[in-house]
Design a protein around this nucleic acid. Structure first.
Length: 876
RNA sequence: GGGGGAUUAGCUCAGUUGGUUCAGAGCGCCUGCCUUACAAGCAGGAUGUCGGCGGUUCGAAUCCGUCAUUCCCCA
């Protein structure tokens, strides 16, 4: 049977994924094994796979697959998030294309469209994850709007309300005038934009011609001014303290107040205060008890407070009012100015700070255990530098505005029965609400028809924060077998961008509702960037389609490509050449398999060199295995992968297989082949979490397997004692072999030409690997001598001289300069060592161990110098 | 404006508690090879003021200060 020269991932990937599914390897049920639980960061239900998901989910899959091999009961729960704003925006857009306006639909009609959309496009992303090889327990696929999940969300809100953690309040919020919804701070993107700074003068009340000049980027908000503020220490304005100014156009008289908040250097040092339309002004307004004048409707159109501008758009008004100010002599000057403006993450329209009645969760107390348990290490962050960022945020945590003016999501279970500020109740259903409302109002005549449920839904994160609990029904069926078994989960893999949106809040919910941490480790991935360092995004169009990449390089290749250079928390500058490297690796392994499987076994004696090779690889494998385990424990996943890559490619393929490889058309002995296959299997085991498909494929081709003998559930190798002596011996042999290759190269001696090697032993030299040297160097003989060999290329390993005689072709000058170069290096080295040893302070201060090592270095160097000098003398 | 990182080879990154001439890996690059597993390969090779300056120390990529550059978060 002819085995193809290159590995073809396609058929193997489909075949093995469906095999794993059929066997139920991904499915988990509680049993007596140790659980290993990971919950997926649920992607948006209508999303498609992008490179960020690839990175994130590959890492999770590696962790889960390794845990499975370690004999743990691995459970990776997949699912999707309803993503209220993003999904609603998509549905609105789609309806608009069909000529349907959201405002023409009832809530129920709109939700029907939304669910249709979800049915059609929802879960595409989960199908794509299967192509990547994600070993999720698909039977557990969850959705944040599943009936049971929704119950948890509503229950939690009611519970928090009953605990007094929920309040309804007027707050300055980020208003998206296009989507007509409040946004959380995190949904606002600040961008630098070129704008104008308008200098406008206000007349001092009671004066004839006394003015003060303010600078503003938003002259239209003049109509909402309720004060002028200056710095109390600003000498320019001391005479105005306690006076009043007249707002241009509006002709209102407002106080001139002082506050240290004002930056004297900025603009004119005079600040107009518009509490209704600026966060900082709002704070000032509260502090100084100022009037709040709202001049906008919720869509950004000026309202009746805007006098003759009522009914006009905010940006038009800005231009028109600037003109009116100018015409009336109020506009002093206009400067170009760069300032930061908030934009809506979803609609990209300019955010309008706005006072609005919203629902809030009071966070301070809830956050306390979440802060403590990260800082004390109960929950570990990888890399742990994120603890600082986390602490800073949690110590200054702000109350959480959880209401959104949308329909797609969990509707807020608040019912109003009157027009008063507190004429509402919070309840699970209209029926329960009615009972509560009767009680609260004292009006027993109320009927359900008198109740109006709040129109708003919850912030998406108000459901996502329950994810690790609610996927196991921990809130609706408290104490059930699954939540007891799987919670707390083990590792969470996510992006640092959502540390506050999500991670922090899951931790809060964990302590509040389970009394325990939701996960033990948080691994923060970096941001996937393109070659130019730009974040990969759909809008930039710089993100490759992951599915195309998988088609091109194979899932294993892509998995490797994405992991090979992505240390935790560092950005991943992605380049498809990395996938090429991954694909090349799978092909390398494939060819190693081709080699091993092509040998014919005969009852021949095992060569000494093969014996030594096996001894060495055994030691080498275990040495690296210990290293890999350590790296994995520290979540240094890309380093672990690199170690495996080198172990397979360099140690196994380039060294081991070459050492045991029989000559052309020569047979191999049984013992060597058997051991080689065992080594191969162990390597495949290490590869399995990273490149599961090629590992499974070769696993089954290497030998006949019984049903169920699959590498996905094979045990992770155990570390055995490492024979350090063998490793040390091999290092010497390796150096000799590399030197021989150099001699061949310099003299153009073909590899197939056999050569002689003479060794003059000047120092300790282990001969254990001589048979390997003979084989790898393709030597006709290796002979020990006490004499120098003339007319030969020579090199030095640990002060021992090696000679490769080769006719008359030896370049004496080259040999000389090589020896001189080496001599001068060793002398320099000796010098530095002796300088240290002569330094009394060093001898007094350095620990004994360091001293001993310095003395040994000195002795070695002295011996080497003697050999080199003798050699040079011989050449002259 | 406030807070937190980062700066080591052309690129992406390692570098434990200061101690081998310690400056490393992968990729890329250069040279030579289609050597019967693999050219998606083999063999060999080069590359650095460890961002600058100052300090502590017998000794600093590592500790301290400062400046510069840069990224992130918050306002």
């Amino acid at each position: 049977m002819e085995i193809p020269k290159t590995y073809d991932p396609r058929s193997a990937e489909e075949r093995w994924y469906s095999h794993w599914m059929t066997k139920g390897y991904f499915h988990s049920e509680p049993d007596d094994r140790e659980p290993f639980t990971v919950v997926i960061p649920p992607p948006n239900v209508t999303g498609v796979l992008h490179m960020g998901h690839m990175l994130n989910n590959t890492i999770q899959d590696v962790l889960v697959r390794k845990a499975r091999m370690e004999g743990k009961n691995a459970c990776w729960v997949p699912g999707t998030d309803h993503a209220s704003i993003a999904t609603e925006a998509k549905v609105v857009q789609k309806l608009r294309q069909e000529g349907i306006k959201k405002s023409d639909l009832s809530r129920d009609e709109f939700l029907k469209h939304a669910f249709d959309w979800k049915e059609k496009y929802g879960g595409v992303i989960l199908q794509q994850l299967k192509k990547l090889g994600a070993s999720c327990d698909w039977e557990r696929t969850a959705f944040t709007m599943d009936p049971d999940y929704s119950d948890s969300v509503i229950n939690v809100f009611i519970d928090l309300y009953n605990k007094g953690k929920i309040y309804r309040g007027v707050r300055m919020i980020n208003w998206d005038p296009e989507a007509r919804t409040a946004l959380s701070d995190e949904e606002v993107i600040y961008k630098e934009v070129n704008s104008k700074l308008f200098h406008v003068r206000y007349k001092i009340a009671g004066s004839d011609d006394q003015w003060l000049t303010i600078a503003t980027t938003r002259p239209e908000t003049i109509l909402g001014d309720s004060a002028i503020c200056v710095h109390p220490d600003d000498p320019r304005y001391k005479h105005l303290h306690g006076k009043f100014a007249i707002v241009p156009i509006a002709n209102r008289t407002v106080p001139i107040i002082t506050d240290e908040y004002v930056e004297m250097e900025f603009g004119t040092g005079c600040l107009k205060v518009t509490p209704a339309h600026d966060v900082n002004d709002y704070e000032l307004g509260k502090k100084h008890d100022l009037e709040t004048i709202d001049i906008f409707h919720d869509n950004g159109i000026v309202n009746e407070n805007g006098l003759h501008y009522a009914g006009k758009d905010r940006f038009d008004v800005r231009k028109e009012i600037a003109k009116e100010l100018d015409d009336k002599g109020y506009l002093v000057k206009v400067e170009d100015h760069i300032n930061k403006v908030g934009f809506s993450e979803r609609t990209d329209s300019v955010i309008e700070p706005r006072l609005s009645l919203q629902w809030f969760v009071s966070m301070k107390e809830l956050a306390a255990p979440a802060l403590e348990n990260v800082m004390n290490g109960n929950i570990k962050f990888h890399p742990d530098k994120y603890k600082n960022t986390y602490r800073h945020w949690m110590e200054n945590v702000k109350d959480w505005c959880v209401s959104r003016q949308l329909w797609w999501g969990h509707r807020i279970p608040a019912y109003y029965y009157g027009d008063g500020e507190f004429d509402f109740v919070v309840a699970k259903s209209a029926e329960e609400a009615l009972i509560a409302a009767k009680k609260k109002s004292g009006n027993n005549g109320l009927t359900t028809a008198d109740l109006r449920q709040d129109e708003d839904v919850f912030d998406t994160w108000f459901s996502a924060w329950l994810w690790p609990i609610s996927v196991f029904k921990g809130l609706t069926e408290p104490g059930n077998a699954e939540i007891k078994y799987y919670y707390p989960t083990n590792d969470l893999v996510t992006a640092p961008e959502i540390m506050f949106f999500w991670v922090a809040r899951m931790i809060i919910a964990g302590y509040e509702y389970m009394g325990e941490l939701p996960f033990k480790n948080v691994y923060y991935t970096g941001i996937v960037r393109d070659k130019l360092g730009r974040k990969m995004s759909k809008s930039l169009g710089n993100s490759p389609d992951p599915i195309d990449l998988i088609e091109k390089y194979g899932a294993d290749g892509v998995r490797m490509g994405i992991l090979i250079s992505s240390p935790a928390g560092n950005d991943l500058p992605f380049d498809s050449s990395q996938c090429e490297q991954g694909r090349n690796f799978t092909n390398k392994v494939w060819n190693a398999f081709r080699l091993v499987t092509g040998w014919e076994v005969r009852p021949i004696e095992q060569p000494k060199s093969s014996q030594k090779a096996i001894e060495w690889f055994e030691a080498r494998f275990n040495q690296e295995l210990a290293n890999i385990n350590e790296l994995m424990d520290k979540f240094k996943i890309s380093e672990a992968l690199m170690a495996i890559y080198k172990l397979v490619w360099d140690d196994f393929c380039a060294w081991y297989l070459e050492m045991i490889k029989p000559g052309y058309e020569q047979p191999i002995d049984q013992a060597t082949l058997d051991q080689t296959i065992v080594f191969f299997e162990q390597l495949l085991s290490l590869m399995q979490p990273f490149t599961p498909f090629v590992a499974e494929e070769i696993w089954h081709l290497l030998r006949e397997r019984k049903d169920g003998d699959d590498i996905i559930i094979a045990p992770w190798p155990k570390v055995k004692t490492v024979d350090q002596a063998v490793l040390k011996q091999f290092t010497v042999a390796e150096e000799v072999i590399i030197n021989i290759r150099n001699v061949r190269k310099k003299n153009n001696i073909a590899n197939k030409v056999r050569i002689d090697l003479f060794v003059k032993k000047n120092a300790e030299l282990d001969t254990a690997f001589d048979s390997v040297i003979v084989k790898m160097g393709n030597l006709s003989q290796m002979e020990y001598t006490t004499e120098k060999i003339g007319n030969a290329n020579s090199f030095l390993v640990n002060s021992n001289e090696f000679f490769v005689p080769f006719g008359e072709l030896v370049d004496v000058e080259a040999e000389k300069s090589k020896a001189e170069e080496e001599l001068s290096y060793v002398k320099g080295f000796l010098n530095s060592v002796q300088k240290k040893l002569q330094n009394e302070k060093f001898v007094a201060g350095a620990p004994e161990q360091v001293l001993a090592s310095e003395r040994k270095k000195e002795a070695d160097a002295l011996q080497k110098i003697a050999v080199l000098e003798e050699k040079l003398a011989g050449l002259n």
